[in-house]
Design a protein around this nucleic acid. Structure first.
Length: 1016
RNA sequence: GGGUGAUUAGCUCAGUGGUAGAGCGCUUCGUUCACAUCGAAGAUGUCGGGGGUUCAAAUCCCUCAUCACCCACCA
């Protein structure tokens, strides 16, 4: 059956995908012919997600490497899977609940909600897979992994032990003291009501204000305030009874614990140690706070004095910690001003006692609510506005003199106005919620990254892991060398629940039921936690504690028993019941995806796959998750199994729209890869991103470019169709054997060109130069095979070398299918299948390795000569407006032996492609002819009466001019003794050759011009 | 404030020391049998500015300009 005129991608891709799938073509180890392995882990897409262009790009590159290695006989694994993506998924499900008008998360309760998210996950499980299959990704789907597989509550079909791996790592790191719980200032997302890590915060510049307020000195004290300029000249001297403070967040003044100045700041030296009053809140309860010194304040900025609100600012927190200043939490989990019913007056007096030196525990300080009644329950921003209004009304805002001249009377009016600066401020936003992040003092779990970071740094320094392009190594090092503790607890429901159980701490006089539990037991199961707790309690209160099941929740065991308490001399037995409860928080998603390389291979079990495919070879990922994911995988794999997770990290850039804008839903410039695949076919989309994948550069995607590469597929299709029409296909043997000792130069030449293409493709892929591989193959297939070899074959098919030409063409085209297959798997597989009865899938055909022995240099030289002759004739004809269809007779006026031999061997080719019908040798150039000069020969096309002499003259002059320009350059270089002396020999040689050639040509052109003068 | 990258044909971009390339677009010509999603021919660049190193610079160094991104606590 003759081939269709075009490849029908829409029809064929699904069929081919199904064929690969049915054959199990991509299973780990499929087509392995030697023991060497190649493994690559997909960066797991979010389970709720859709494939976007970044995924299409990323997965195309992974697929190219995977297919290439599989064809080369490696034991290959491309591990697919998805990430549970805690915040993102919880957000999606909550939004869907809201849209459907169903009860929200909190109304549903945790168990029901998590069940609902699992349903969502199962529903969308096929989504990502289907999208990747449409792209042609050759993942081993039988091994599909999920970062929460095997977690409690997982439905049937979601078995697996990823959860076990995560829990085990948490427990192990905790046991080693690498994970700890602490009350620290963290980034708090008021929308999701959870802590997030530093990396999940985006700093954005917004318009804000800086207010300047007066904090009056306690007891009406005054001091001499002196300001000097750079030269030490006094610019201001006044008596003040206050200290001036600048702030962008007046609402946090309610939680101030101190005012800090720089120790070297002479302006304030006299008042350091004194108390000042926070100028807000009920007058009778105004709080006094100390003026302290710390290196943090910058004397040249603002007034040089900084209010210290340890619970709501990262810098202030540091100052507070260093100086023993209490941190008062002012807001609730939604970032509204605390409204808990506790009386303000009492809180203010407690705070005052702390200033006076009273000792309070952190928990006690945390319980103090210093928000006055009128601000309670307000949004941060509203509270800010009210505070500013109140202070201003009271006259405690710093003011400046404003001069106004009355237009009518000309009277000067001097008034004081509040000093408020409009200011660009960097404000933190949640990367998911997009709401303003509030620093909050909460209890969280942290990984002590400082203790596990060094191996991750060393591994890249020692090149056990190579990061490409190299510029990213610097970024990697910089981040790791300045690493902060990693907050891994999230107050969410969708995720791995933290394997820690809390229990109250028994004291000598019984059990102190401390809120939150003051003892914690970290264990992989509640049973283990129970044992640990029991053992611990028994040490403290020997022999008196027993354990009993908790009827309400067996996973929260209750301990009961008689405890000796009271005065040891008169002991009293007291009955107590203690219930262990599990930490409700879940782990940061990246904690589990950080274990992706080993987790997907079955760790902690020592599976054969773990043995074989770990460490993996390559990780291909975007630069945006180097910190989130790459660095953490490095740290965690090294900490857990003491090996690097991958040998090479290839970091690719961003896919942007054609204007260079980042694709985003809000801009509406998102190109959906599936739409593009529908329109142009997967191969075209793949080839496009591959051709644009220059290392480290963003790529701007335009449809024109994709259409161009779609045409490339069509071109290959039609070259094959031509071959088929000429009896080249179908072939009997598969793959087609390489023709032995062909006679036609064109056949020898294309075999060499093919060998070069193989070598270049291999070299490019080995160095991750995907764009070079793609553009090199494009140039080979279109520029050499289609443009020239197919054209050469036409006359050869009518000649004595017809059979060897068929053999050669079958071989060459099959090599094209093979070489292009990693980039364009569908069209090549289809061509492979329809051009013969194939035993193997193209996806499993052996990748060639010919070396350059197949290159026949003489044939190469000869074909270059033939091609340049044809081009010269065509060019001359076109410029002289010779009708394209007109067959011409040609004369040779000069013809050396090698040129003559080349002509003789390729006469049929040249005649056909240049539309020449005869060649005779003459001594004299016929009148009215155009000249064609090539190496070793000069030809003329007699066109008396047809050509315009003036036009031919100008054509020749133009050509001559160009060559002479080159010639001069070459000559001056060779005339420079230093050049001949210093330049490498081959460069000098090359230059000499070029000069000789140019000399020859100019001579011929000059001669031709002279002849035109004669007749003209 | 620190860091990284970019600046090459009308557009989008390749090009790590030997006198500039591709795709798209543009101009002219061409449908007899692989392909009009095509073919043939053609035009277009002091490689951001300035300086330096070198026999030789788009390429290496310095500097300036513009743009982009990343990191960072200036109240």
């Amino acid at each position: 059956m003759p081939m269709e005129k075009n490849f029908d991608a829409a029809e064929a891709e699904a069929r081919i995908s199904a064929m690969w799938d049915k054959a199990g073509a991509f299973k780990a180890g499929a087509n392995a012919s030697h023991a060497e392995t190649f493994s690559i882990m997909i960066p797991p897409p979010n389970v709720t997600g859709n494939l976007h262009m970044g995924h299409a790009f990323n997965n195309t590159l992974q697929d190219i490497l995977t297919r290439w290695h599989r064809m080369r006989g490696f034991d290959t694994l491309w591990q697919p899977g998805t990430d549970h993506a805690g915040i993102a998924t919880q957000m999606v499900v909550e939004r869907e609940l809201a849209q459907a008008g169903e009860p929200g998360r909190r109304e549903m309760g945790r168990e029901a909600f998590v069940k609902r998210v699992w349903q969502q996950k199962v529903k969308s499980r096929g989504n990502i897979k289907g999208q990747l299959e449409r792209l042609g990704a050759s993942c081993d789907w039988s091994r599909e992994a999920f970062t929460m597989s095997g977690a409690p509550g997982a439905p049937a079909g979601e078995e697996g032990n990823f959860h076990d791996a995560v829990i085990k790592v948490f427990v192990d790191l905790h046991t080693k003291g690498l994970i700890y719980r602490g009350k620290r200032l963290v980034n708090w997302d008021p929308h999701f009501e959870t802590a997030i890590s530093d990396l999940e915060v985006e700093q954005t510049e917004v318009d804000g204000f800086m207010w300047h307020f007066k904090y009056p000195l306690a007891g009406g004290e005054t001091y001499e305030y002196v300001e000097k300029d750079e030269d030490g000249k006094v610019t201001l001297r006044e008596t003040r009874d206050y200290i001036s403070i600048a702030t962008t967040r007046p609402e946090t003044m309610l939680g101030d614990g101190a005012v800090a100045v720089h120790p070297g700041d002479a302006r304030y030296a006299a008042i350091v140690g004194m108390l000042c009053e926070i100028p807000v809140g009920p007058k009778q309860h105004r709080r006094l706070i100390p003026i302290i010194t710390d290196d943090y304040p910058d004397p040249t900025f603002g007034s040089g004095a900084v209010k210290i609100t340890g619970a709501h600012d990262f810098n202030d927190y540091g100052v507070a910690k260093r100086n023993g200043i209490p941190c008062y939490r002012l807001m609730d989990t939604k970032a509204y001003m605390r409204d808990d019913g506790a009386p303000y007056a009492e809180a203010a007096s407690l705070a005052q006692r702390i200033v006076e030196g009273a000792d309070f525990t952190e928990a006690e300080i945390d319980a103090i609510n210093l928000v006055p009644d009128e601000y309670r329950g307000l949004d941060r921003l509203i509270a800010r506005k009210r505070v500013v209004e109140a202070i201003t009304a009271e006259g405690l805002a710093v003011t400046y003199l404003h001069k106004e001249i009355d237009a009518e009377t000309g009277a000067e009016d001097l008034s004081r106005r509040p000093f408020v600066e409009a200011k660009k401020i960097m404000q933190p936003f949640g990367d998911r919620s997009k709401v303003v992040i509030e620093p909050m003092l909460t209890d969280q779990w942290f990984v002590d990254t400082a203790k596990i970071v060094q191996p991750a740094i060393d591994a890249v320094r020692d090149v056990r892991t190579k990061i490409l392009p190299e510029q990213h190594e610097k970024v990697y090092f910089h981040w790791l060398e300045n690493i902060e503790p990693w907050c891994i607890s999230r107050q969410l429901w969708w995720g791995h629940q933290i394997p820690v159980w809390y229990g109250p701490k028994p004291t000598a006089d019984g059990v102190a039921a401390v809120a939150g539990g003051s003892l914690h037991f970290c264990a992989t199961t509640w049973q283990d936690a129970k044992e640990k707790a029991l053992a611990h309690y028994q040490t403290i209160v020997p022999g008196k504690i027993t354990v009993s099941e908790n009827r309400d929740n067996r996973e929260q065991p209750t301990f009961g028993g008689l405890i000796r308490s009271g005065d040891p001399s008169k002991p009293k037995l007291q009955r107590v019941n203690v219930t262990l409860f599990r930490d409700p928080d879940v782990l940061d998603t990246w904690f589990s995806s950080g274990l992706w390389p080993i987790g997907t291979l079955g760790w902690p079990e020592q599976t054969p796959e773990l043995e074989k495919y770990f460490p993996t070879d390559v990780l291909i990922t975007g630069f945006d998750i180097i910190f989130f994911w790459v660095a953490r995988m490095m740290m965690m794999q090294l900490a857990v199994v003491d090996q690097v997770p991958f040998h090479t990290v290839y970091v690719h850039a961003l896919v942007r729209d054609e204007k260079g804008k980042k694709m985003s839903k809000s801009l509406g410039n998102v190109l959906d890869p599936l739409d593009l695949i529908d329109e142009f076919g997967a191969d075209a989309v793949r080839f496009t991103v591959t051709a644009m994948a220059a290392m480290g550069r963003d790529l701007k995607l335009s449809k024109d470019r994709i259409a161009g590469y779609r045409n490339f597929g069509t071109k290959l299709w039609n070259a094959t169709r031509f071959a088929e029409m000429n009896g080249v296909f179908p072939v009997a043997a598969t793959p087609s054997p390489r023709p032995e000792a062909p006679k036609a130069t064109a056949n020898k030449w294309i075999i060499g060109e093919t060998a070069r293409a193989v070598a270049e493709t291999d070299a490019a892929l080995a160095e991750f130069r995907f764009n070079d591989a793609a553009t090199g193959l494009y140039a080979f297939v279109w520029g050499r095979v289609c443009d020239w070899y197919v054209e050469f074959a036409k006359p050869l098919f009518d000649g004595p070398e017809a059979q060897e030409t068929r053999t050669t063409m079958a071989w060459v085209l099959e090599q094209c299918f093979i070489l292009l297959h990693p980039i364009m798997p569908f069209v090549t597989e289809e061509l492979w299948q329809i051009t013969g009865t194939r035993e193997k899938l193209l996806a499993h055909v052996d990748w060639p390795d010919y070396g350059i022995d197949l290159v026949d240099e003489a044939a190469e030289r000869e074909m270059r000569w033939v091609i340049s002759l044809i081009e010269e004739i065509r060019s001359a004809r076109a410029q002289m407006h010779v009708p394209a269809g007109l067959q011409l007779a040609m004369v040779a006026t000069q013809f050396d032996a090698p040129a003559r031999a080349a002509w003789d061997r390729n006469e049929a080719l040249i005649n056909r492609l240049a539309r020449i019908d005869s060649l005779i040798e003459v001594k004299a150039v016929p009148k009215g002819s155009i000249t064609v000069a090539v190496e070793g020969a000069t030809f003329a096309l007699p066109l008396a009466g047809v050509i315009d002499v003036a036009e031919e003259k100008s054509r020749l002059s133009k050509t001559l001019e160009k060559i002479e320009k080159d010639l001069n350059g070459l000559r001056s270089r060779l005339n420079n003794p230093k050049f001949v002396e210093s330049a490498p020999d081959d460069v000098v040689e090359d230059t000499r050759d070029k000069l000789a050639l140019a000399d020859e040509e100019t001579a011929k052109l000059r001669a031709a011009l002279r002849r035109l003068d004669d007749i003209g």
